[in-house]
Design a protein around this nucleic acid. Structure first.
Lengths: 210, 210
DNA sequence: GCTGCTCTGTAACTCTTGTTACTGCACAGG
DNA sequence: CCTGTGCAGTAACAAGAGTTACAGAGCAGC
């Protein structure tokens, strides 16, 4: 734990804080596709991502999903964070995008460290800022962009997060994330292929130029 | 300033903090319609709303606007907040919805108080939490709702914020806020009127039952 | 009361996205 | 090699929202 923690957070947290994290944190792992937090669940701690990526989703009353953003190493979930402090239920769903490992920090320590460590405060604020920015990006995308542009954005993000130019998803899975229908995604992907920006095979999409 | 401050924040901040706010804050006012912060501007402080309401807007590259949410007495702008700490430019526009007054807190004090006062920390975190929730609501609206439902939501919010069941806006202004066209809004408003949920006059909309 | 301006109502059309329905292909497992 | 299942391609249509264009209503200033 120590080694991974230092790789991801060593340059932003001071030594004493790292010690406290090692002492109080619980290491957890999740495999790609695992649900990490469900909407309506009480949040028991705050995760510090060490490895892998997590996707954060919103759901409406009919069960329709929408991808908000991805978290990577060095990120934490600000949503969780404010839930912890308010002891409220989660408003989002978190699903492991790849195999992940993270450290869970108990709620009690969070408040303590906020008073005690400047680096922790900065991290927490920085995290809120990043998350708000990402929410704004998500809003921009759904409010101002057409489906084809949103799809390109999605494919770019997905390739980046997975560090793989080949995306291993079905059209249906993409449709869920983007809150649209499979037919629409197939249609647009085919158009992108004709434009020589991607190439399509069963269960995978290869990014050529987006 | 003292009196208004205590009315809005007296029950959440301790006395010493209130003293510091009075000492360091600068009181400002804005008339309905005034721009308070513009996108790309550097943020010089953090506003504590005393009176009135502010609307927070996002803009895309073509200058198209979208209303994100309203702020009221007791609120602060978390966006501003994270901009302050990061010394970055504003990502949003803030416009006075009604005549407003607020206290500007200089950046330097914010960090100091975060270490010093628990009530300030809680306020800041609480504020982030509220703003994130409101962003989620905004996302829900544009992602999951149709125009007619979004319009009803808008009218409800607007009536609530202004404490006035009669909304004094033109269809064009509503269209700007909702990032659509005037014709669409006129069409839907007429439909709502036929359903006896609102009544329409020139420059005003009276909410009957939404 | 006339004039000019802004605001609203409406029709007709286009475009994008969503829906339904069907076809065929790919692959795993017998 | 056959077959079932899931995945992808495509057509045809429906619905919602955006666009253009124009007519007329309301109101302020003269």
């Amino acid at each position: 734990m120590r080694k991974e923690l230092e790789e991801a957070y060593g340059f932003i947290f001071e030594k004493e804080l790292l010690d406290e994290i090692v002492e109080n944190g619980i290491i957890k792992t999740a495999s790609a596709g695992d649900k990490i937090i469900e909407i309506g669940e009480y949040v028991t701690g705050m995760p510090l991502l060490l490895k892998g990526a997590i996707k954060i989703l919103r759901e409406d009353n009919d069960g329709d999903e929408l991808l908000l953003y991805f978290l990577e190493r060095g990120d934490t979930c600000a949503m969780t964070l404010s839930c912890c402090l308010g002891e409220t239920k989660s408003e989002i769903r978190a699903v492991a995008e790849t195999d992940t490992s993270f450290i869970m920090i108990p709620i009690s320590k969070m408040e303590e460290w906020t008073a005690k460590y400047k680096s922790w405060r900065n991290f927490v604020f920085e995290s809120y800022h990043s998350r708000l920015s990402e929410m704004l990006d998500a809003i921009d995308a759904i409010a101002f962009l057409n489906m084809d542009e949103r799809l390109m954005r999605y494919l770019r993000d997905k390739a980046k997060i997975n560090r793989d130019e080949t995306i291993h998803s079905t059209h249906q899975q993409i449709a869920y994330d983007m809150h649209t229908s499979r037919v629409v995604i197939s249609r647009l992907l085919k158009k992108l292929e004709l434009d020589k920006r991607i190439s399509l095979q069963r269960n995978q999409i290869k990014v050529i130029d987006l």
